[in-house]
Nucleic acid binder design. Structure first.
Lengths: 327, 327
DNA sequence: GGTTTTTATGAAATGCATTTCAATACAAAG
DNA sequence: CTTTGTATTGAAATGCATTTCATAAAAACC
């Protein structure tokens, strides 16, 4: 930078101002410096900048790849969320640090934050680690979480109205006069538990309804398929309605049940979740609960910006919608 | 760091050595320093470290979200690749910078590299920007690309054997005595063009075969659906074999064609690409070409490490496989 | 014309960890 | 009891840009 300054016949601070877009330089000085910088092939060192400015200009996005890999049930959904976040961060000129290692303990979070590796965190899906996130929030580390929204929680969460999603599914079942419902999903996951509760709520409107639960252990596609198949073979009464925690899971159920001659929509109603593109084109096309993916990423980033500014952003819930199709 | 040094009664370099895991400190000094650091809540500043070490310890992963968003045809495939890369980088303690902005021009690459924002680049899918990547490679910027493998190319590419994929599809069509093939995909994309060439190659084995092409403009699911539907309505002879560039596209085709009463496997054979989980459970289940996602991410990272070490890694091609199902 | 305000620029201090080189202490070898 | 080698440790130099504060110059105001 000294060199550029010398050649352009200005001082170092001026070069710095030009290169970081400060408005405190005259137009022609700017021109001159820019020209010299370009011709000398000079690029300022980002780390020196970050060191001096005492901020990373980067956000860590935490993602549990484990549960989305290799045939695991990770609807393209999370990917879309990620795309939205990436874009929103880009606009604000912030780097996106994807799933840095070590974030499975509170110390990992604190260390990354303190060492200025990231200015804030966006966690995608609280999954089964709510306790950890509560701790992080209590350390006053800027963070927003995509997932279940709980007002009692110490952190700011943005998520779909999972309970509404469950209710919508239940109401559809009632409309079709279904009475023996099956819920497919792991209630370990806060989000999924809320969907279950919504379903229960809808069930209360009719005293005849019974809900059974097929608790999912492995997220692998074929595992769900097999579990569903085994369930159907051993259950006393076959379900006439199924609410699956994802469209992909719904597809697995359709396959597993059809092998036993149990067909949708003839024998049972089925509602999935996420409204992934193939859901509309599956045979039969899958009725599902749609989340507002588009807005979600941008909203998460916006909330995080508020947190970075020192305020405590409020959690927000995005509406969910029933998309009616064949099943 | 000075404080920690003082309290632990050692010098700054010693603290540095302890904290960065150098073996040049005695065991009890290490203990002592570590204890003080912990109790003082000290974390070293990553940017100071990166500044001094003159490397970012970060890899930029470039991803064209645009073509994978909002119902666009981005099979979970890319996501799995990303997961693999993330893991491989984690192991090597490298940060993953996801799709930093500005990488649509050569200057963007050079700037990010020179300013030490990233030590290297992994580009996922060369798409229609091969020319840009060639330029990047010629600037001696460490980079590996997932996509079409071309020995004449200036950069190291890792990809599936797309041409083989095409051939496998063609051979299956021949086996089923299909003669009027339809290729669905955009040949602007190098990878997809190679698949087409493989298909052509197979076609040459039988002089009766004719290949038509449905060139895809928009990657949106419904756009493909509509294009396929329009095609079927206007074509003179209906295809009896379809090779689609992705499983999701294949699903779109199945839907579009079935509306016109053109059914698979009865009226035409269909081969998709990527073997995404739902492909196996779709009705009918989709015959497809599988790529080795698992290995891919790790291999990309490995090659990039070689490039960082100054050597010029050789491109590599992963085998593809035909997964036979109903269609 | 003199004074106040604004605009443009520079000197020096600051953010923080690593590395080279030299020095010391200690053990092993002769 | 030297000599040589090894293991630890420290002083000082280095990597690089930003910011505060001050100054000079130019513009605006009375």
């Amino acid at each position: 930078m000294d060199d550029v300054a010398r050649i352009a016949k200005v001082s170092k601070p001026t070069v710095s101002r030009v290169l970081s877009g400060s408005p405190l330089v005259s137009a022609d000085t700017r021109e001159r410096v820019l020209a010299v910088a370009r011709e000398q092939g000079y690029a300022l060192n980002r780390h020196a900048q970050k060191l001096r400015r005492e901020r990373a200009n980067a956000i860590a996005v935490v993602l549990d790849f484990g549960s989305h890999r290799q045939g695991a049930i990770g609807d393209p959904f999370i990917f879309e969320l990620l795309a939205g976040i990436s874009e929103a961060l880009s606009v604000r000129d912030l780097d996106l640090l994807l799933s840095p290692s070590g974030l499975d303990t509170i110390d990992g979070f604190v260390d990354l934050y303190q060492s200025r590796g990231a200015d804030g965190f966006i966690v995608l899906g609280q999954g089964a680690r709510d306790a950890l996130l509560q701790k992080v929030a209590r350390k006053d580390i800027p963070m927003v979480v995509w997932g279940a929204v709980n007002e009692a929680s110490a952190y700011c969460a943005v998520g779909s109205d999972n309970s509404l999603g469950g209710r919508l599914a239940g109401e559809r079942f009632l409309l079709h006069d279904r009475r023996r419902w099956l819920f497919v999903g792991s209630r370990q996951h806060e989000e999924i538990r809320l969907r279950f509760e919504g379903l229960q709520e809808a069930a209360r409107k009719n005293s005849d309804v019974e809900i059974d639960v097929l608790s999912i252990e492995s997220m692998a596609f074929s595992a769900i398929h097999d579990q569903a198949n085994a369930y159907l073979k051993t259950c006393t009464v076959r379900p006439d309605a199924v609410f699956a925690f994802s469209d992909t899971a719904a597809m697995a159920v359709i396959g597993a049940f059809s092998k036993e001659g149990h067909l949708t929509p003839r024998d049972y109603s089925l509602v999935g979740y996420n409204d992934i593109p193939p859901a509309a084109h599956f045979t039969p096309s899958i009725t599902t609960i749609a989340q507002q993916t588009g807005v979600a990423g941008a909203l998460l980033v916006e909330k995080l910006m508020q947190a970075l500014d020192g305020s405590r952003p409020r959690s927000a819930m995005l509406p969910t919608q029933l998309v009616t199709r064949q099943t």
